[in-house]
């Protein structure tokens, strides 16, 4: 089980994440939602070990991951929000780099890397530098790199970014299957329709604070609202979206 206890991250004095606590059990898919700047990616980066929290702790199966970050990272797969990959490496070279850094045996790594590229339809571009890849192709490489070592925890930060419809649907089914295999999955996204379908529970974050933490079904019942979009609007988007749209059109005409 993955547990966050009172995680806070401050930049100067401003909290980007403010006392966030939640748990995710094996087999659960946690939807991590919030508007831009709510602190979603900051939390994910803290979990991935890319940022140090100002206070609070992350526990996995009861142990504090700060005591042995390498042990935790060995069991972690991460798809970042921005597809920053070394542009001079090819897709295959990138997967080999990640696999070797993760200590995978050479023969198995080559086989897996080739297979991942094949199933994602990148076989023909495996020797092309990543700098020449489209956003979707990079995303496929990043997803492959995150799954290469069969992780127990999967952090997906906007994983659908740049993916075509078919690959998005494949990813949706893949997340479900991985949950069936008792993986811990945190799925951060702005696409509420997809989140609603694949997540067993959701956390809604606003200005760094948790404003909702329950299953979609329970939230619907509690708030008497029919969909996650409306729950989200009620909790977070306090602006009249139609009025803002009218304003934008007005500014365009000036």
């Amino acid at each position: 089980m993955l547990e966050l206890r009172g995680i806070t991250k401050k930049y100067n004095v401003f909290p980007a994440v403010d006392h966030v606590s939640f748990t995710v059990s094996p087999g659960e898919v946690l939807g991590y939602l919030g508007p831009n700047g709510a602190g979603k990616s900051t939390t994910i980066k803290i979990l991935a070990g890319l940022l140090e929290p100002t206070s609070g702790e992350v526990l996995f199966d009861g142990f504090d991951v700060r005591r042995d970050p390498a042990r935790f990272k060995r069991r972690l797969g991460y798809v970042p929000e921005q597809s920053e990959i070394y542009p001079h490496l090819s897709g295959l070279e990138y997967l080999l780099l990640v696999g070797r850094l993760r200590g995978l045996p050479e023969a198995r790594l080559w086989e897996k890397a080739r297979d991942f590229l094949r199933v994602f339809g990148l076989d023909g571009d495996r020797d092309t530098p990543v700098g020449a890849y489209s956003k979707g192709m990079r995303q496929k490489v990043l997803i492959s790199a995150a799954l290469l070592h069969d992780p127990d925890i999967l952090l997906l930060d906007e994983p659908l970014s740049g993916l075509d419809v078919t690959t998005s649907m494949i990813l949706r089914d893949l997340v479900r299957r991985l949950a069936d295999e008792k993986k811990v999955i945190i799925y951060s996204s702005h696409v509420l329709e997809v989140t609603e379908k694949i997540c067993t529970k959701v956390i809604i974050l606003d200005k760094g604070r948790v404003v909702a933490n329950d299953s979609v079904e329970n939230l619907r019942v509690l708030m008497h609202l029919p969909s996650l979009v409306e729950i989200f609007s009620q909790l977070v988007a306090q602006e009249d979206t139609d009025a803002v749209a009218r304003d934008i059109v007005g500014v365009m005409g000036n």
Binding site: A48, G49, L50, D68, P69, A70, R71, K73, R74, L76, Y78, P80, Q82, E84, I85, Y86, P87, H88, L97, V98, L101, R102, G103, A145
Partner: peptide, 16 residues
């Protein structure tokens, strides 16, 4: 650094 933003991959996979 080459591609300074991409070094997260080393940080993420660092062993003990």
């Amino acid at each position: 650094p080459f591609g300074p933003e991409a070094n997260w991959v080393f940080r993420l996979t660092e062993g003990s």
